[in-house]
């Protein structure tokens, strides 16, 4: 448990992922709210740029990592029963993996 859930490693990933989320979220908000693509081809063209695709893949990974560490923290604090905690951690991992795979699938099709 200690090696898998190392405190320093989780804390470091949370900070690193948070840094990328803080940097890239304004880019996404600016593009989607202040300069939204006029139509699907415009959106497709923007997302298909290598830098944006890479940024989005990293964003997806960072979002899932950040959510995993945050969700894990909440479950470690509030769910003391080992079985219930394990089941909820498994559920959280399944949801996040499904979201990550779904997001990667969208980017792959582009």
């Amino acid at each position: 448990m200690t090696r898998l859930a190392s405190g320093l490693r989780a804390w470091t990933w949370q900070r690193l992922s948070g840094l990328w989320l803080a940097l890239f979220t304004p880019v996404l908000l600016w593009r989607l709210l202040w300069a939204p693509p006029a139509d699907y081809p415009a959106w497709h063209g923007w997302v298909a740029r290598p830098a944006i695709t890479l940024g989005l893949i990293l964003y997806l990974a960072a979002l899932c990592m950040h959510a995993w560490v945050g969700g894990r923290d909440i479950l470690m604090d509030y769910v003391s029963h080992p079985g219930a905690r394990l089941a909820l951690l498994g559920g959280l991992a399944a949801v996040l993996i499904a979201c990550a795979l779904g997001g990667l699938g969208i980017l792959y099709r582009i």
């Binding site: 448990m1 200690t2 859930a5 190392s6 405190g7 320093l8 989780a10 470690m76 604090d77």
Partner: peptide, 11 residues
Amino acid sequence: LEGPYRLFRCH
């Protein structure tokens, strides 16, 4: 102090 509990429960 390493590990998920001793130090890193501080939020």
